[in-house]
């Protein structure tokens, strides 16, 4: 097994571990915003590590995989903003554990 192969296994393994943690986080976190933390950060780095490891297995795929990585890093947070914003606008999704909520006050001020 060459050095590249070992490195590739390390990266894909780490990526899988981070993705697993992300799934567990979405399952275990109590409310929608905290689920979003696990579902955004960990899936981004997990996919990046996994795709990079895959590129080490097959160096000729690397340019395409890096394009996918770029796309994921640019778009993952955007979908999380959209979801978080929609959740905050929906009263039934509102968690009751927020210690401080400036956004609610700002909205209240507008009306």
């Amino acid at each position: 097994m060459s050095f590249m192969d070992i490195l590739a296994h390390v990266f894909t393994g780490l990526g899988a571990l981070v993705l697993f943690a992300s799934g567990l986080g979405v399952f275990r976190m109590p409310d929608v915003f905290n689920k979003m933390h696990a579902g955004t950060k960990a899936t981004t780095l997990g996919s990046v590590l996994f795709l990079f490891g895959l590129g080490l297995f097959e160096p000729s795929w690397m340019p395409k995989l890096l394009l996918i990585v770029l796309f994921i890093v640019l778009t993952n947070p955007v979908s999380s903003h959209a979801l978080a914003r929609a959740a905050h606008n929906e009263p039934s999704e509102k968690p009751d554990n927020l210690i401080i909520d400036d956004l609610e006050e700002s909205k209240g001020g507008d009306q």
Partner: peptide
């Protein structure tokens, strides 16, 4: 920062009681 964020969330998730103190700040 992104790597730090993942280490942070990783250890948070595996704790028996997840330590959270959420809030929205402007």
């Amino acid at each position: 920062q992104m790597v730090k964020a993942n280490i942070d969330i990783f250890f948070r998730i595996f704790k028996p009681v997840i330590p959270i103190k959420p809030g929205i700040v402007k």
